[in-house]
Design a protein around this nucleic acid. Structure first.
Length: 216
DNA sequence: CTCCAGGTCTGGT
DNA sequence: ACCAGACATGGA
């Protein structure tokens, strides 16, 4: 996972008036605990690849998969370190070679998505500029990309802060802290966007960070 | 040896 | 629409 790209254009203090949830008792606590928290900003293609590998994997494993793909198929960028392969490059790679990077069943997703993208010139510009709902729907059509991964791609790869990814952590956080017990992920995602507004994705990061810290 | 992990897809009700 | 299982791999 590339961790060198941090959003620098989100000045939290200057955005106070755009954070209606700042007075939310749950979020107020999280914000205090994580003052200055920032959103990862990745190139769109990298975000898509990284999160396409994320299903049913622990975070260190996802990084491991990305490093293997970079080492085998990426271009060198810095002292022996390679970039992640581009989607154009991935489209040329047989699924069996991807499996050799320990992608498991995700190899088929990467392979099929790569071919789909190769047949969709201009997809990146479209995702970067389309309204949330449209971009989300298009991404979720890709093999292996469901609602959660589509939201992560938009949030981290397209700076679309409306996206509110609902993973196991957020599902539990919203159930415990907001009383949404028994809600389905799609319902929780809609609640998050409605409750937190245009910067729902930033709120999601506070919740995510807080929830993971609790476990330790 | 079992269980689970920043889910998604498929085939059952 | 909603609910299991399957899906590869690796670490606890």
């Amino acid at each position: 996972m590339v961790e060198d790209y941090f959003a620098t254009d989100l000045d939290f203090d200057a955005l106070a008036d755009q954070l209606p949830w700042r007075t939310d008792p749950v979020m107020e606590k999280r914000i205090r605990a994580w003052h200055g928290l920032r959103l990862l900003r990745q190139p769109l293609g990298e975000a898509l690849l990284a999160f396409l590998c994320s299903s049913a994997k622990q975070i260190p494993h996802i990084a491991q998969l990305c490093e293997r793909m970079a080492a085998r198929f990426g271009e060198p960028i810095w002292g022996g370190v390679n970039a992640l392969p581009t989607w154009a490059r991935l489209a040329e790679i047989p699924e069996s070679d991807l499996r050799a990077c320990s992608l498991g069943y995700r190899a088929a997703f990467v392979h099929q998505t790569a071919r789909r993208l190769a047949a969709s010139p201009g997809w990146e510009a479209k995702i970067m500029s389309a309204p949330y709902a449209e971009a989300h729907a298009w991404l979720a059509e890709l093999p292996g990309v469901g609602p959660k991964i589509a939201d992560c791609v938009l949030l981290f790869g397209a700076a679309n802060y409306e996206a509110f990814p609902v993973d196991t952590w957020i599902l539990r956080a919203m159930a415990e802290r907001y009383g949404l017990r028994g809600w389905r992920p799609a319902q929780v995602a809609q609640f998050g966007r409605a409750h937190f507004g245009p910067l729902a994705g930033l709120a999601q990061q506070f919740l995510f960070s807080g929830e993971r810290k609790e476990k330790k």
